[in-house]
Amino acid sequence: MADTVKLPEDSFKPITADDRAALDSEKIAAPSLTFTQDAWRRLKKNRGAWISLIILGIIFIMAFGSLFFSPHNPNAVNPSYANLPSKIPGVNINGFNGTLVQAGERVDAYKQAGASSLHYIMGTDYLGRDLFSRVLYGTRISLIIALVATLFDLTIGVTYGLFSGWKGGRVDTIMQRIIEIILSIPNLVVIVLLILILKPGMTSIIIAIALTSWVNMARLVRAQTLEIKEQEYVLAARTLGESSLKIAFKHLLPNLSSVIIINTMFTIPSAIFFEATLSYIGIGISSPQASLGTLLNDGQKNFQFLPYQMWWPALILCIIMLAFNLLGDGLRDAFDPRTKE
């Protein structure tokens, strides 16, 4: 048996207070983080979401920076340089070196047009406008439309949802019925009807998208409000006689913030998508203005012969959509305490 082993003499002295303190101090406590800090830390760990955030940042800076600095005037027509393919300095890959296949032979389109010294990194369109500048310009318009529309729908949706959830009862039932009716018509149909009434243009697109896409936000906020309303701390605030408005701003909104932020990340790409679809159909932005949708529409006409004219705007559109979706996913995971490792 083990008890026959000879042990040092002082082995059986009770441990001292110092020793005990040392034992206790070995425990490592996790640093306490606030909810936001914790979410931010987890977002940074999510590689997809983090890269998306950076890419979106770059796209924003370039799109809005082009207001002050643009390689070419996006609307400057130059028929002699029409339909030049992509030419990126220093890159000698077919498709990016200013050459294209004409009658079975690869020729330098820039030389033909007498523009050997010029570079259009995304090429030019059928009117000789610089595609890169137009894509930047179009991205800016698309982003503005999406952001403004989202801002509106955020305001409408959050207010509607908060009110409906907070009031409850009859008011809530009626407000939910209204939402159900709106949901029973496809969004795009409503948007088209609204644009027809308001006359096509940027403002009416923004209004139309804003007026239709708040429903989702309203439903989410309502559901969350119903839940939070029953929480003890809200009850406590009510018992203490705080006004509804104060409770809404002090207790409800902070707790709704994650739902709102996440949903916004999904509203923006859907607004961009609607704008692109409208412009693609032909009732969106009209020329000489451009958006990603109109650029796609223009590019698609010549896709068989000049595929780059559609590829570039399509690529940018998909990257923006992808980045917002990934960021939204990442934020959802970051805000959801269940995914905490």
Binding site: L7, S11, F12, I15, E26
Partner: peptide, 17 residues
């Protein structure tokens, strides 16, 4: 040992059999 009011010195050094 760390939670044990009766902990001995050996408790911090050697696992009891």
């Amino acid at each position: 040992a760390a939670r044990n009011a009766y902990a001995l010195k050996i408790d911090t050094e050697k696992e009891p059999p």
